[in-house]
C-alpha cells in the first residue's frame, strides 16, 4: 500500500490561554492542520497522564498539550503541574519505544493566534516525518 501517511493528532488546550489562541488563529483565518482535533479543558493541569497513555496505546500519532505561559496560569500554578507531569510522562513514553517528539507541551497565550498556527503546523510536519505510531497496529486494549 503506497498510501501517504496522514497523522492523527489530538490537542488538549487550556480554556484561558491556548483555547483562546486557537480561536484567534481561526478568527484571523490562519491555517491550522486539519488532522489536529482539540479538547478543551479548564487548565492544562486537568490533563490526566492516563489520557495521554491511552491515546498512544490507541494509536494516536501525536499529542500536544498547550497552556498558559509559566507564571500566567489562570489558576496560579496549574501549568507547572502540567509541566512536571509532562516531563515524567515523556520518560515513560520512551519505555514504550515511542519517540518523545510525538508528545509536545507548548505555552501559547491568548493573543498568540499566530503562534498557535505555527506550533501546530510544525508539530504536524514533524509527526508526518516521523511516520505512524508504532503502537498503532497492535492495540493493547479493545
Amino acid at each position: 500500500m503506497a498510501q501517504t501517511f496522514e497523522p492523527n493528532l489530538i490537542g488538549f488546550l487550556c480554556n484561558w490561554c491556548s483555547y483562546a489562541a486557537a480561536d484567534l488563529a481561526g478568527s484571523n483565518k490562519l491555517e491550522v492542520p486539519a488532522n489536529l482535533a482539540t479538547i478543551r479543558v479548564m487548565c492544562s493541569s486537568r490533563v490526566d497522564p492516563i489520557f495521554i497513555l491511552n491515546a498512544y496505546l490507541r494509536g494516536i500519532d501525536g499529542v500536544i498539550i498547550a497552556g498558559c505561559h509559566p507564571g500566567d496560569c489562570h489558576y496560579q500554578t496549574g501549568n507547572y503541574y502540567a509541566r512536571r507531569r509532562f516531563a515524567l510522562l515523556s520518560k515513560i513514553l520512551k519505555t514504550f519505544n515511542l519517540d518523545p517528539h510525538r508528545f509536545r507541551l507548548s505555552w501559547i497565550s491568548a493573543s498568540e493566534g499566530q503562534r498557535f498556527s505555527q506550533v501546530t503546523k510544525e508539530f504536524a510536519e514533524s509527526i508526518q516525518k516521523a511516520g505512524p505510531n508504532p503502537l498503532r497496529k497492535k492495540p493493547f486494549i479493545d
Binding site: 484561558w16 490561554c17 483562546a20 498558559c68 505561559h69 507564571g71 500566567d72 489562570h74 497565550s109 491568548a110 493573543s111 498568540e112
Partner: peptide, 12 residues
C-alpha cells in the same frame, strides 16, 4: 514584573 500576557489577564 511577571511578564504575564496582558490579553489573558484582562479577557476573563
Amino acid at each position: 514584573p511577571q511578564m504575564e500576557c496582558a490579553t489573558c489577564m484582562l479577557a476573563p
